[in-house]
Each structure stands twice: as C-alpha cells, then as structure tokens.
Amino acid sequence: MTPEPLIALEGITKTFGSGAAAFQALKGVDLTIARGEFMAIMGPSGSGKSTTMNILGCLDVPTGGVFRFRGVEVQKLDRDQRSLLRRRYLGFVFQGFNLLARTTALENVELPLLYRGESKAVRREAALRALDQVGLVPWAEHTPAELSGGQQQRVAIARALVTDPDVLLADEPTGNLDSERSVEIMELLRRLNAAGITILMVTHEEEMAAFARTIVRFRDGLVESIERGALAGEEHPA
C-alpha cells in the first residue's frame, strides 16, 4: 500500500477573467508530490508554473479539480482556513526576498511566530535557531538595507523555516542573485531538504533546477514532462 502523498493535484484548471476575455492558465494538471521531495518547476512564462505555485502555496484556489494537501481538499477551504494552513505547514521564499524594511533580520524571522501567538522568548529562540541554520546569527540585528542580496535571501529562508514547515515554496529564489550566491542558496536548500523538508521551487535556470530531485516542466497550462531522480546536484559536494 502506497502512503497518501503529501500533495496531490487532480485535473486542476484555473481560468482568469470571464466571457470573451477569459484565459485558461491551467488546463488540467495532475501531479503528486511525496513527502521529502525536492521539486523544480520549470517552463516558459505563461506556461502555468506560477499559477500552479500559487495554488500549491494555498494563496489561490483552482477553478476546477481537486487539490489535496495532507488529505485535505484545499479548494473547499475559505480564505482564513487557507491562511491557517499556510501558517501551520508552509514556508515561502520569494524572488524579491520580501523582507520587511527597517526591521531587523531577527524580527523578520520572528514574524510568522507572531501570528502563531508564541511568546517573545519562544520567538527569539526559534528565530535564532533558524538564523543559525542559514549562518546569519551575527547579522541578526541588521536591517535588510544593511545586508547583501544573498544574505537577505538567507534571512527569507530562515523566516520560512522558523515555523518548522512541511513544505517550503520557493518562487525563483535565485532570480535576483549572481551565480555564486545562487549556488550557495541552492546548497542551503539541498541541506534543508536532506533534513526532511519538502521543497517546491519555481525556476527558469537549468543549473538551479539541476539541484532538485525531480524536474517538472510546464507548457501551455499542462505538465509537459516529469524527470524523476535527476539529483544532478549530487555531483556538487555539499
């Protein structure tokens, strides 16, 4: 008996707008993602990869189909229930880092715990642990403006990690970084994946996708191909 996959997409469609202006971004996507996966989602712009990512991140709901996350049918949940799902199980890393300006790295990392109602002491301890995972404890009291792009992205990863999520969703996490910083970030993601976190990453760079276990390619709102067990990154010693 195969265990229930962590994530299952069945016949997912997504239509934006209505009538003549309607645009079908997803035309029936089927995808299952097992716990511990490190998946890169690729595809040209307009292929539906970002829309899929938004649905996987419970930020958006599909127009049709079934999206099961931990056995729960997410498309049936309301806005606040999806917020609670994100708060509890998901961590986000964005291309633009999206840290709060004029707020220290430590406070940025503490932010998700604030919404969990954790005490100040718990928040601080967990945030420092997360910053330690990304090697930024000495920078805890610095604001984003005082950090390099690579450091900002590592703070963002620490923020995603601090709640100990099941899934880390990374949307072009290296899009704003030079190749050296990008490799650093990817190696960090690999380490986190090895520690048990499921990672879903959108990227358009083959070199970055090579770090993932599985590469899913989108085209015209459908899954074009799935390359499992790529593990190209194994060649790079971590």
Binding site: G57, L59, R79, D80, S83, L84, L85, R86, R87, R88, L90, G91, F92, N98, L99, L100, A101, L111, P112, Y115, R159
Partner: peptide, 16 residues
Amino acid sequence: TREIGIRLAIGALARE
C-alpha cells in the same frame, strides 16, 4: 501593500 502581502502569505488572517 507588499508588507501586507508578506503577512498574508505567511499566514496572517484578514482580521489580524
């Protein structure tokens, strides 16, 4: 707006 987006993405409820 972006800050609000971040807060919502990491799981803030509308009422929060």
